[in-house]
Amino acid sequence: MATTTPLVEMHHISKHFGGIQALSDAHLDLYLGEVLGVLGHNGAGKSTLIKILAGAETANEGSIFIDGHEAHISDPNDARRHGIETIYQELALCGNLHAPANVFMGRELHKWGFLRKRAMKDEADKALSRLNIRIPSLDAEVQSMSGGQRQCISIGRAVHFDTKILIMDEPTAALGMEESKKVMDLIVELKRQGLGIIWISHDIHEVYNFTDRITILNGGRNVITAPTRDFTQDQIVSMIISGRPIKTVAAEG
């Protein structure tokens, strides 16, 4: 954590869906070049929290600061303007389109409304090969590709546009073991390039190995935010379940 100003700060975030309180007074902060794990069981509010940051939901209360400046994020395009990109577990790609169309979806390169297909294909090719992503063909529908290849295209898309903050919502949940490893390697590489990464996962082992700090949510409230290695895996699991912080020597020090 080289800088003192966090890359992202989310303060006092509350959100309810009808009568259901998904988040109450939740906090989150993320620093440059770190991987922050967001943990909690189903319904703990972690997906809602990051959807608010990604612009897919808007909070009822609370504020978001990016690089110390307040940011108003009300749709995915606002989030992107702040350099926030999201990778969803359900593979947010259109299966009927090829890789370049997916990489540039929603921000196609164009001249007077006419697609610059050549330029997009070249840039998509560069973006994917920079991350060592190999796909069968740039002209093939992504539907014909494996889950791992598709997730790699998502990641290639996410980091192509001058990204500072990468949100990953269970990026390996739908993948096989080998494919997961490929994706994890990619994340280590991205972290080295200095991105701030928010990582949501149910796989405690994965979280323990890849995150620098963790934020645990329970019932829409923060349980604890601390360096991952202050705890054992068992202690983290017990905090996720109980919703109560465990005091350790390291955490107090």
Partner: peptide
């Protein structure tokens, strides 16, 4: 894109 997957189109702005 919308015909392919409307949800994705929305997520992608």
């Amino acid at each position: 894109a919308i015909g392919g997957d409307e949800r994705v189109a929305r997520l992608e702005g």
